[in-house]
Amino acid sequence: MPNLVLSAKNLNVELGGEKVLEDLSFDLKEKEILIILGPNGAGKSVLLRTLLGLMPFNGEIQWKKDIHVGYVPEEFFVSSTLPLSVKEFFRFKKVSQKQILTALNYVGMETSEKFLKKKLGTLSSGQLRRILIAWVMADLPDVILLDEPMVGIDIHGRETIHDSLEKTWAEQGQSIILVSHEIGEIVKKADRVLAINKRKLFFGPPEKVITPHNLAKIYGSSIIL
């Protein structure tokens, strides 16, 4: 399959003797938006981190050759006393001023020189999240993995960011893997949905797999206990 960006086969991950992911297989195509759903503790973040080579695993992970991967982690904290400006943070990536401004536009942030001079640690958690997304996108990765990117952003902000990101991704032809613990608007924008709870629950285009029966599989199983 020439247009595969990623192929994962029979992934097994253990944490402290406990199985966190079991026998998971899926793939990601070029320009595809894949949403990973699952209840809290289903192993979604572990899956992303395994794909990135941050966790030991059994099985097979095959990325397309020379691919440039970007990652938006779930947790990202900056001390308010750290004198690191927004601009300096972007400069870590050796990107030009123009690329910084373009990336800030993707996430609907202001691009004034005054804002660029602000300390990263003094931004609100929502602003910081948007900056992080823009930072990851600034040097145009081929694939972006986002772990609960909208946590801490209000509903209005979410819609704006989703719309603008979706447009940008379509323009740039990036592949996206987005982890979310809640089912919402976002799922409609996916090309395929992968639901997991340690094991694969279902995998396919949203119009086919998002059924009441399947949803009960995700959220029912977490309620039983």
């Binding site: 941050l54 991967v69 970007g70 990202f76 870590f92």
Partner: peptide, 15 residues
């Protein structure tokens, strides 16, 4: 700058 990035998020730095 790499050390500051490692400090902000080791995983981000690795990626």
């Amino acid at each position: 700058s790499q050390m500051i990035l490692i400090n902000l998020s080791e995983e981000l730095a690795y990626v």
